[in-house]
Design a protein around this nucleic acid. Structure first.
Lengths: 210, 210
DNA sequence: TAAAAAACCTTACAACTGTAAAAAAATTTC
DNA sequence: GAAATTTTTTTACAGTTGTAAGGTTTTTTA
C-alpha cells in the first residue's frame, strides 16, 4: 500500500532532487574539465579554457566549485570512477593463464591507443600532486586502487599457473606502470607500434615476476 | 717556444673569453632556475620566482635566454649533465654480481634521499614534455641516456652472473624507473623507509629479469 | 500569479604573467 | 679619459589568471 504523501515528504523529496541536480551538474562540469585538462595539461589549463568547453561562462565554475583545486579534485575522482575496474570482467572470465594475459593485454593496449590523453593527464596530475598537497589524497587513493587492480590480476595469473608472485604488490604495480608509462611516451611521440611493443614487453615481464 | 701574440690573437681571445663568460652566466642562471623549479614545480614557477633566487632582476633572464622555454630547456640540460653518469664508476669497479648490485642500490637510494626534489622535477618535466613539444627533444634525450645507463648496469650484472637479460633495454629501464618513481612518491609522502623498500624491491626485480 | 529563492551570467578587479623597451651602470675600446 | 659597447636595472605593457560582487533570468513556493 502506497504511503500517503504529506507536506514533509514533498519538501524532502524536492530537497533531494535539488541535491541530485546540483551533483549531476557538478559531474557534468567536472567531465568537461577532464576533457580540457586532458587536452592542455594541468599547467596550461585555466578556468576559462574549461568553461569554453561547456555552455556556461567561467563564473559558473565558481558557483559549483569552491575554487580551482576543488574542481580538479572532482575531476580526478571522475577519472577514477572510469578507470579502476576496467579489467575485472577479464579477470573473472579467464580460464587459463594465457587467456587472462591476453584479455589483460588486449584491454591495456586498447586504452593506451583510445584514451591516450587521459592517461597523459593522469601522469601529469600524479606529478603535480608531489608539489600540491591538496591533490595528494585523491591521487594517492587512485594509485592505490590501481595497484589493487593490478595485484588482483597478478594473483589470479599466478594461481592459474600454480605459481606465486615474486614481487610485492607495490613493486609489481610499479614495474607494470613503468612499462605502460614508457609505452605512452613512445606512442605520444609518434611510435605507431607502441602498443604491440608494450604487449611483448609485458608478456616477458609477467613470465618472470610470477 | 711561445707564439708571438698579435692584435688578431688578442681580439679572438677576448671574443672567446666573452663567449665563455656569457655561457657561464647562462649556466649560473640555469642552475638557479633548476633550484626554483625543483622547489615549486613547472606549473607554479614564474620568471620572477627564478630571479628571486639570484642576485639579478627578472629582466636579466630575458637578456640571457630567448624566452621561458629556452631557459627551461637549458635547465634540463644542466640536470642531464649532473645525473647521467652517476653509476659508471660503480659499474667499472665492481668485481662480483653482489658488489655491483650493492653499489648500484647504494647510489640509487642515496640520490633518492638527497636529491628528492630534483627527481620530483624530472618526473614533472617528463610529463610536461608530453604536452609541450618544445621540451620534448631534450627530455627524450635524457630519457634515452638514462636507459643506456641502466642497460650498462644490467649487462654487466648479467655478465658477472653468466646469465642474460630477460627484458629489452626499453622494458628494463621502464620497470626500474617505475620502481624508483613509486619509491619517490612514497618518500615524498612521508614514508621514511622508502629507500630500504626500494632496495629490497629492486633486489627481487634484478633477480628475475636477468 | 505575485513573491521568494535558486541558478546563472556579466562584469569588474587586483594580482600576476612573459615580454619589451628605455634608462642607467659598468666595462671595454681606442 | 672620452666614446662606444656591454651588462644590468627599471619601468611599462598588454594579456591572463582566479576570485568576487552585482545583476538578470529561471524556477520554486505559497
Amino acid at each position: 500500500m502506497a504511503k500517503p504523501r504529506n507536506r514533509l515528504d514533498d519538501a524532502s523529496e524536492r530537497a533531494h532532487a535539488k541535491v541530485n541536480k546540483f551533483a549531476s551538474r557538478q559531474a557534468e562540469l567536472a567531465n568537461a574539465a577532464l576533457t580540457t585538462l586532458a587536452e592542455l595539461g594541468y599547467a596550461r589549463t585555466s578556468l576559462r579554457d574549461i568553461a569554453d568547453n561547456t555552455d556556461f561562462s567561467h563564473g559558473v565554475l565558481r558557483y559549483y566549485f569552491n575554487d580551482k583545486d576543488d574542481l580538479i579534485v572532482q575531476c580526478i575522482r571522475q577519472y577514477k570512477s572510469v578507470c579502476v575496474r576496467r579489467y575485472d570482467l577479464a579477470i573473472e572470465t579467464a580460464g587459463t593463464q594465457e587467456d587472462l594475459l591476453n584479455a589483460f593485454l588486449q584491454k591495456l593496449t586498447e586504452t593506451l591507443l583510445n584514451e591516450t590523453k587521459i592517461h597523459r593527464l593522469w601522469y601529469d596530475l600524479r606529478s603535480q600532486a608531489l608539489f600540491d598537497k591538496v591533490l595528494w589524497t585523491d591521487v594517492k587513493q587512485i594509485d592505490s586502487d590501481l595497484e589493487n587492480m593490478v595485484w588482483r590480476i597478478i594473483e589470479r595469473y599466478a594461481r592459474l599457473g600454480n605459481s606465486t608472485p615474486k614481487l610485492t604488490p607495490n613493486a609489481a604495480y610499479a614495474a607494470i606502470d613503468g612499462l605502460f608509462q614508457a609505452a605512452l611516451v613512445r606512442f605520444v611521440s609518434g611510435e605507431e607500434d607502441a602498443d604491440t611493443e608494450l604487449a611483448d614487453e609485458l608478456r616477458k615481464l609477467m613470465r618472470v615476476i610470477v
